[in-house]
């Protein structure tokens, strides 16, 4: 069980699509900024790694202190990024795969503009549920 984790989905043009704080750890305000910073900093690495493999799950791409950044890139170049401090690769992989499926369902909605923020509360609830289950 990861004590603290931050999850974001970044669109093809590096636009934020969705973000949430998941996990059960105590939250500090300054930590939230740090999390964002670490995630943003690892985007460049993802950009390079993405063309070296056909797998969507890129595993841990970057680390900062005791924080790890795991990434999953979909066919349409949407990046699912998770910041976590405990390693549980299988759980994270399952989490990514299920969120990917949710993302496709949202994308298939003709009224959703690709690359825009996902505002659906049902999507948010599902992601939090999956985070509880796998992380």
């Amino acid at each position: 069980m990861a004590t603290t984790a931050c999850f974001v989905i970044v669109g093809k043009n590096d636009s934020p699509i969705y973000e949430s704080e998941v996990g059960s750890g105590p939250r500090k305000d300054e930590a939230a900024h740090l999390h964002q910073f670490v995630l943003h900093a690892s985007m460049d690495i993802v950009q390079d790694v993405v063309w070296t493999t056909q797998n969507m799950y890129l595993k841990v791409v970057d680390k900062f202190g005791d924080l790890f950044v795991s990434t999953y890139v979909t066919a349409g170049q949407a990046k699912l990024m998770l910041l976590h401090d405990l390693k549980s690769e299988d759980g994270i992989k399952n989490f990514f795969q299920e969120v990917h499926e949710l993302y496709i369902k949202i994308l298939l909605n003709p009224l959703y503009v690709p690359g825009s923020k996902i505002t659906s509360p049902q999507f948010d609830a599902r992601v939090r549920m999956l985070a509880k289950k796998y992380l």
Binding site: T74, A75, G76, A78, H100, E101, Y103, I104, L107, L108, P114
Partner: peptide, 9 residues
């Protein structure tokens, strides 16, 4: 772009 994401999955 929808077809790509869906079919790859």
């Amino acid at each position: 772009l929808r077809v790509l994401e869906l079919l790859c999955h």
